[in-house]
């Protein structure tokens, strides 16, 4: 394994006001991002949120319409090859040469990297129980994903970028795979993970970003996220009666009414706010708990509040 050479803390990825206009849509609408090294960063977002476009820009496949970004201290638009040498990339549907055998594709890819690549690749293949003489075209979807992942990490990149990496993997492999991500972060490497598998993100991510309609709604460490988001359920006498807004710094991400019950996802909820609500006329009862990541994700990406709250929470 290569060693960490530089201990200066510079963000591995930075993005400033990235926008991307395609022919019929705006894929990115001003993305700002900063990812610290040695973290597992998970980018959550619904389909079409702009995750893949962001990754394509970060990996140097696409020039943004405006804004700038740096990956491993390199500008991917100016030096895409430099970026690709530093990173490992697994796309959502990796197109491998299906006429090659597993061993051949390893040997072929190894020719672009140092001599250790092949050994690492072979170890990885053995770990995933894939026969080296198998043709790529005869592999199952999950096995292909394993090969693609092995190819992406065999040169021990400083940054591993993955777009929906675990789709097609069985639970056992998924767990092992996710654990390897944590191991990578522990050795100073950075993992950038785009996914909508919230459970796996919760398991491995240090930092979570939620993307919605080309914007990043918020970025926060997972621990902070867990602490700062709460689900509040209020039982009221009259559902039509208006509730006074929560005082600052609380931010309501979503609000749903069902019968006499109101459910809110709130960020920065303070105990005194609970007490104040309880004292509000017409309130029968109030319960609150820490919101799950899934509830936060749904709150951020749905409902009329999501766009407004994006500004406030980011």
């Amino acid at each position: 394994m290569n060693t960490v050479k530089n201990s200066v803390i510079n963000p591995v990825i930075t993005a400033e006001s990235l926008t991307m206009h395609f022919r019929r849509c705006d894929a990115l609408r001003g993305v700002d991002l900063s990812i610290e090294p040695g973290t597992v960063f998970a980018l959550l977002g619904e389909n079409g949120a702009g995750k893949t476009t962001l990754i394509r820009i970060l990996t140097g496949y696409q020039k943004p319409s405006s804004g700038s970004c740096r990956v491993c201290d390199l500008d991917p638009t100016r030096d895409p090859l430099g970026v690709r040498r530093q990173i490992g990339y697994v796309s959502d549907s990796p197109a491998l040469y299906d006429w090659m055998t597993v061993s051949q594709i390893g040997g072929f890819t190894a020719s672009f990297y140092d001599d250790a690549f092949r050994n690492h690749f072979n170890d990885s293949i053995v770990k995933y129980e894939i026969r080296p003489d198998q043709k790529i075209r005869s592999l199952s979807k999950g096995q292909r994903a394993k090969v693609a992942l092995s190819l992406a990490v065999a040169h021990d990149p400083a940054l591993l970028i993955m777009d929906e990496p675990t789709s097609g993997l069985d639970p056992k492999v998924r767990r092992s795979f996710l654990e390897s991500m944590i191991d990578r972060a522990a050795t100073g490497r950075t993992v950038f993970l785009a996914s909508h598998q919230i459970s796996e993100v919760e398991r491995v991510a240090d930092t979570v970003g939620i993307m919605h309609q080309g914007r990043i709604c918020f970025v926060a460490p997972l621990s902070e996220l867990r602490e700062s988001f709460s689900e509040v359920v209020i039982d009221v006498e009259d559902p039509l009666r208006t509730m006074p807004p929560l005082p600052s710094p609380a931010v309501v991400l979503s609000e749903e009414t069902e019968g006499r019950q109101r459910e809110l996802i709130v960020r920065h909820l303070k105990p005194e706010m609970i007490a104040a609500i309880r004292e509000t006329p017409g309130v029968i009862d109030i319960r609150h708990r820490v919101a799950t990541l899934e509830e936060v994700f749904i709150a951020c990406t749905s409902g009329s509040l999501s766009t407004d709250t994006a500004e406030a929470t980011a």
Partner: peptide
Amino acid sequence: MSAVTATSKPNRFNTWLI
């Protein structure tokens, strides 16, 4: 940043590519 040395050999005569 904590850069990791991921050495590569992009310019050599690549028999695998051939």
